[in-house]
Nucleic acid binder design. Structure first.
Length: 772
DNA sequence: TGCTGAGATATTTTT
DNA sequence: TATCTCAGCA
């Protein structure tokens, strides 16, 4: 079958573009990944480029893997020669290859965010920095932010005393990392950028090599990433390959971590992009769902402009439900889901989305009580589990003993009588000799020195013993010799931890196979000396280069590679053993996924859009894009819900419904609860769906009803009720949050959403009940 | 050395 | 409300 079969005209145009830079605006569900991979396959198949001339960058390992899988199903091609991976993965590879030029040890290790934070804490403590004034988290944010913008401490401008100090600390942090031979995530990119910028022949080499650079999710790139791409694409130097950027400005939801949508426009401008192709044909959702998405996102001002269309027909309308409380919202979700399942929908095809993780609890409780299996996305990943990190730390020390973070993590774990005082002594010795903790051990005498020396012996011994062993065997030995296994066997809750530790042997086996290391090659063995390797080595202007289609084994030992893998790919969160379960997740983590039915919950002012978004410039626009992402996850059924009251952080909050409802096309919506409703007040009357349920005696809803009653009935003789929707001539629609004072002189606190929170005198203010 | 209780603190997240 | 972190204690 031909590669180009079944592509629509726009997709076809994108796939077969000439060798020039191009921007592909790919809407949700428009076949973005397909275009990207088919483009690569087409370039290869038509002989326009060899595998080594391809570089494809993604943000997540999952996306990279997906690309590789699809590609190898299209073409019988050796994917090893291509550079396909995440920004961080590819930079790791670059830095290993050129570690000398990058001034790094070949066995440099990668700090994940946890490691980075603890390293900063340690440094602040050692320097006696006031942690009230300079919280470790703030400093970490400051450092990462600077790095993401390509700035070293020396080029950061400081405008006050605090910032000046932060800059100093940034510099000290970098020095410490250098001493230990570790790099953080942002450093991987910054180092690579600086290396290429500084080293002309090297840069030229890669510019000539990568004829085609393809970038996925371009709207999520930060400034440093964009500059790195510019460098590789030879922008402004008259050479280099073509950049093929795929992105969707409407799905830019990561500004908070430095992503800059502006890079899309910048790319158009900088590269004088003549090929802008919009993929607007959606293959995922029914019409009413797409109409809702299009209507909503049209409220954003700064857009490149795009409108999704579908051939699938209008389908079902979007169903909207107003619940009386978060508890009742959860109950409604369960009822609806059950009826969907009754129609034959699989549980795993139903997703429940929320803006923030805190919202999942109530839903989980209800699902659990109803006996419905569910999976919550985003928990602790495999390589982030404490016991696994401990084992990794032992391996790290064997590969690079100067990694102080690893040293401190396990020097006394499992306990071996090395207390805080010994560590303090050691830290002082290390400081005064300007060496790592490991190297400072011989300077410590006495009993403390003895235990420390024993620890060093343990590491050295393990290294010696495993010298000739392949990686999985080495892991096995380390688990034993570190006494980690023995330690957890003694613990009562240790069984799961032991299983996780033992899984590491399997993880190592799999890794060695997948990365093409010889199954029996010793884990410690560094890359063959480059001259001896012969094959794969090229010289450019007298500089020795390893051709990057040489296997990974040429640039790092199995052990170093495995450790990098553990930091760069945290591993999946524990998967629910293949069970067909409903999917719970934040809207952010739903990006890139799709489901037959989607519930978007908690659509209330303050929650979604989130209250903190109004403080940021264009914050609400980003929330709207988030909503856009949420809507476009649904194939056939879309539900939205909001509640009158919700328990959050131990407090009951009364919220107005989200402004986003006003931005949806009325004809695509179906209000399950009356749009304009008469509400219960004063003790009796009720016409809405929920209060019938609330005050029903007995029945399965009784417990919930009771709680609702406790929370919402607030007889106070004013004729008004907390939680009631009202309307005011000037402030618009609002919800009563609180009522103070008696019948004659009562004042009500009312949340008018966008118009803010007001306190109004009930005898003066002209309030109208929303509805009749 | 590990436990306990006070206190803070609570968008979103991948690498 | 629930979870995490840190200081102080047996």
């Amino acid at each position: 079958m031909n590669l180009l079969d079944n592509l629509n005209p726009e997709q076809l145009a994108a796939v077969t573009l000439p060798n020039q830079s191009a921007l592909i605006l790919a809407g949700a569900g428009s076949g973005k990944t397909r275009v990207l991979t088919t483009r690569i396959a087409w370039l290869l198949q038509t002989g326009q480029v060899s595998p080594a001339g391809i570089m494809a960058v993604t943000f997540t390992n999952k996306a990279a893997k997906e690309m590789l899988t699809r590609l190898s199903s299209m073409l019988p091609v050796n994917t090893r020669g291509m550079w396909i991976g995440t920004f961080h993965g590819l930079c790791n590879r670059l830095l290993r290859t050129h570690h000398r030029d990058a001034a790094l040890p070949q066995t440099f290790q990668i700090l994940d965010s946890q490691d980075q934070l603890s390293m900063i804490k340690r440094m602040l403590k050692a320097l006696n920095v006031d942690d009230e004034k300079y919280p470790a988290k703030d400093l970490m944010y400051f450092i990462n932010n600077a790095k993401d913008q390509g700035m070293r401490a020396s080029s950061v401008e400081a405008f006050d005393q605090v910032q000046r100090r932060m800059v100093e600390l940034y510099d000290l942090y970098d020095q410490q990392c250098q001493r230990e031979g570790v790099v953080d995530f942002a450093e991987l990119l910054l180092r690579s950028y600086e290396l290429l910028q500084r080293n002309h022949p090297l840069r030229q080499h890669y510019q000539m090599r990568f004829r085609h650079i393809l970038v996925d999710e371009f709207q999520d790139t930060n400034d440093l990433q964009y500059n790195l791409l510019k460098l590789l694409a030879g922008h402004g130097e008259g050479r280099g390959g073509a950049m093929f950027a795929v992105g969707d400005d409407d799905q830019s939801i990561y500004a908070f971590r430095g992503a800059n949508v502006g890079n899309m426009q910048a790319f158009e401008r900088d590269f004088e992009v003549k090929n802008l192709i919009k993929l607007e044909q959606n293959y995922r959702s029914h019409g009413h769902i797409l109409d809702s998405a299009n209507f909503l996102i049209a409220n954003n001002a700064k857009r490149l402009g795009k409108n999704l269309r579908t051939d699938a027909g209008q389908g079902e309308p979007v169903r909207i439900y107003e619940a009386s409380s978060d508890l009742e919202e959860a109950q409604w979700i369960i009822d609806e889901s059950k009826s969907l399942m009754g129609e034959g929908m699989r549980r795993s095809e139903i997703a429940i989305l929320y803006r923030s993780n805190a919202q999942s609890r109530v839903i989980e409780h209800a699902l659990f009580a109803a006996g419905l299996p569910y999976t919550v996305y985003g928990g602790l990943r495999y390589f982030q589990r404490a016991e696994v990190k401990h084992a990794i730390a032992y391996l790290q020390l064997m590969d690079n003993p100067h990694n102080d973070s690893a040293f401190l993590r396990v020097v006394n774990f499992p306990t071996r009588g090395i207390g805080a005082r010994s560590i303090e002594q050691l830290q002082m010795a290390a400081e005064s000799h300007g060496v790592s903790l490991y190297a400072a051990v011989p300077h410590i005498g006495g009993k403390a020195g003895g235990s420390l020396a024993n620890f060093v012996k343990l590491i050295e011994g393990a290294r010696f013993e495993t010298q000739q062993l392949p990686l999985p065997e080495m892991v096995r030995v380390v688990l034993e010799r570190s006494t980690l296994l023995a330690h957890y066997e003694k613990e009562k809750e240790g069984q799961e931890r032991i299983e996780n530790l033992q899984q590491m042997v399997g993880a190592a086996t799999q890794f060695v196979q997948e990365e093409g290391f010889g199954a029996h090659s010793p884990a410690h063995l560094g890359p063959p000396s480059q001259a001896a390797a012969g094959e794969g080595v090229v010289y450019v202007d007298g500089i020795e280069l390893i051709e990057a289609d040489a296997p990974l084994a040429t640039v790092m030992s199995p052990l170093s590679a495995f450790l990098a893998h553990a930091s760069l790919e945290a591993g999946d969160a524990q998967a629910q053993a293949g069970q067909d379960a409903m999917q719970l997740m934040t809207v952010h983590s739903a990006k890139g996924l799709e489901f037959d039915a989607v519930f978007i919950t908690g659509l209330e002012e303050g929650l979604f859009p989130h209250e903190s978004s109004s403080r940021e410039l264009d914050g609400v626009d980003e929330e709207r894009r988030l909503m856009y992402v949420a809507i476009t996850r649904a194939r056939r059924r879309l539900y939205m819900s909001f509640t009158q009251q919700r328990m959050l952080h131990g407090q009951t909050r009364f919220n107005v419904k989200s402004r986003f409802f006003e931005e949806l096309p009325e004809e695509s919506l179906k209000w399950l609860t009356p749009r304009v409703q008469t509400k219960w007040f004063g003790g009796r009357k009720s016409t809405t769906a929920w209060d019938d349920a609330d005050f029903r005696e007995g029945g399965s809803d009784n417990q919930i009803a009771k709680q609702i009653t406790q929370r919402s009935s607030n007889a106070n003789g004013t004729g008004w009720r907390i939680g009631e929707s009202v309307s005011h001539a000037r402030f618009g629609e609002g919800v009563i949050v609180n009522i103070e004072g008696g019948a004659g002189s009562a004042r009500a606190q009312i949340n008018f959403g966008a118009a803010g929170m007001k306190v109004l005198d009930l005898s003066i203010a002209k309030l109208e009940r929303v509805g009749t």
